[in-house]
Design a protein around this nucleic acid. Structure first.
Lengths: 343, 343
DNA sequence: CATAAAAATACAATCGATTGTTTTTTTATC
DNA sequence: GATAAAAAAACAATCGATTGTATTTTTATG
């Protein structure tokens, strides 16, 4: 380890009396450099504590070994698992990950997209802010051939890679499961559905499942949360539980909401699932811990992160080949635990 | 938005028939550039869709607007909150955050530290891998005057900034709280304590609290988990509950472990806190949800992230001023909820 | 209006790695 | 040993923003 001076290829070149181009090529095993020289260069580089300056390489090549990740927050279990999946996959290929949190603000998202662009990231993975309807701030990546993947919360009308689950089908399955358990009056907790997002899709599944089984949807049974928090979940659950005719089942579009519902029901002395069956969405860690254990829809967070990263990596390498941009659907399952099992 | 060509200050310079140096200075309101020119340059830059290339700036100035964050994982609630705090604070000052997960592996940590160094991050915030005992791989940052903050899991013998809670005091408080509730036979769940880490400190607090109240520590009452997971927690809890003389209180060094203990106790028909009082550590989201609500020690994750980032930012600016490197202690509190309240 | 002082802008080197092209060295062949 | 071919290494430009220094333009003053 040297004193305070940063070691560059110039220092190595000087020491070995070679050209910097030779050093640069030797370090990456270029075929025009002799074995002997390669060995010598690597040895000295090691000794001098040389660490390549990725900025210089990135500037020259106009690309970095960095993937930008833009998500609403990192603290939700689903998103932190997603990020973990991205980071692990990127790391394996020598890529770094820059994280930004939009905090569900459209303005923040626009500004952060610009910042990522300025950082010359090699690719971008984004889960949209809840308030985002216009996505033109992502156009800059596409027009510069920077691979862009939307994951989980994706826009409808943007032609790029998307990694999602089939939220409609999942909502349908969840609801049908409750119906199979004998529920006939099923409440639904959703959030920000007016933005036409994934919650809306789940709700569509809910509605169609009811329809299929000849149950007439009631508006009073659907509660739209302002934010996906425990407190809002409790408020919304109580709205359902306060109805003159109480629901006998609840499909919550997220585990936090489902947990709120369980707690609210228990607080009133109701038995879950006997009095009211509840199913959530996401398979957050808490679903295995809450009493009764929460039935839920699996949501393969880490896998989605991994696949998103793989798409980025593949499309960086195959340069302008402009692979067909498509939607990757991942499987979900109804995970039946205690909270919904009436039989 | 332009077609496909990336806009640089050269393009702006050409269009306005000015020198690039003028453009560069105008864009940052340098006082030697006239108001008129500044306005003109900014207008055209905006029109042309100019986004500064942070690589070029970073290369020239030998510093980036980036903070490296190296943590065991991003999926633990404490760490994701920590990261969130860092990211928000950094973002406010125009800094980006690169995330890396050591997955508690020493080798990964060493390699990632090198990678961060190669990325020329302006500062580094690290929470050590559990398996790390030697920290010489962080020396490169100090010797290059790159501010380095260790947070939460910090090394003993490294002279740099540290942001931690007083784990000893917290362990003491938690244990004393149980004693005040009338517990006399208090079990302790800890993890990897042989590495001499923060868990060890909490255990020291536990032991001293017992001593202060004339309770003789028993080795059988201390269980050391191999990993901090729910499953390992259950195993460890059962070891305690299987003792011929069962403990009447448990201080778990983390909320996951505490939750495992609650569930394991309940599964045996034991009442919490009547039969056995339990207190955790961290104040994870789950502690408010588990039944009974979990008493715990607050652990100001987001705040620790914020402060760590602030230290970095401050010490980047004050360049080589080499502020005195010290330990910042944050407050913790005993958060008494249901799981420990016998009175 | 000449000249000094101040203001505004231009010039040119720099950061460190990469890479297309050229030159030098080595090897092969007659 | 001369010459062509192949191999190895050197040369030099480049990426885009920054910044110390020089130059030009403007303003002020007698």
């Amino acid at each position: 380890m040297e004193e305070n001076k940063v070691v560059t290829i110039y220092d190595i070149a000087e020491k070995l009396n070679l050209a910097t181009s030779t050093i640069s090529r030797a370090l990456k095993d270029h075929h025009t450099i002799s074995e002997k020289t390669i060995k010598k260069v690597k040895k000295v580089a090691e000794e001098m504590g040389y660490v390549p300056n990725t900025l210089a390489a990135g500037l020259r090549g106009n690309k970095t070994q960095t993937i930008g990740v833009l998500v609403p927050t990192v603290t939700q279990p689903f998103l932190s698992s997603l990020i973990s999946g991205i980071e692990i996959t990127a790391q394996k290929s020598g890529y770094n990950v820059i994280i930004m949190q939009s905090n569900d603000s459209y303005e923040a998202e626009v500004s952060m997209a610009k910042s990522l662009y300025g950082s010359r990231v090699s690719g971008v993975i984004c889960s949209l802010a809840m308030k985002t309807t216009d996505t033109s701030h992502f156009q800059q990546f596409v027009s510069k051939d920077i691979p862009l993947v939307f994951v989980d919360r994706v826009p409808k009308d943007f032609d790029t890679f998307k990694v999602i689950i089939d939220n409609y089908a999942a909502g349908f399955k969840a609801t049908e499961h409750l119906i199979e358990q004998g529920c006939t009056r099923i409440g639904h907790l959703t959030a920000g559905s007016k933005f036409g997002n994934l919650y809306t899709e789940r709700m569509r599944g809910y509605l169609d499942a009811l329809k299929k089984h000849n149950i007439t949807p009631k508006e009073e049974l659907i509660v739209d949360l302002k934010a996906v928090t425990y407190e809002e979940g409790v408020k919304a659950s109580n709205k359902l539980l306060d109805l003159k005719t109480r629901p006998d089942g609840i499909f919550a579009s997220g585990d936090i909401m489902a947990v709120s519902a369980i707690q609210s029901a228990k607080k009133r002395g109701l038995k879950v699932p006997e009095d009211i069956a509840i199913i959530g969405f996401n398979n957050d860690p808490i679903s295995e811990i809450i009493d009764p254990n929460l039935s839920t829809i699996t949501h393969p967070a880490a896998k989605m992160g991994q696949i998103s990263a793989e798409i980025i990596l593949k499309n960086i390498k195959s340069a302008k080949k402009s692979a067909e941009k498509g939607i990757t659907y991942l499987d979900t399952e109804v995970l039946v635990r205690e909270s919904s099992q009436k039989n």
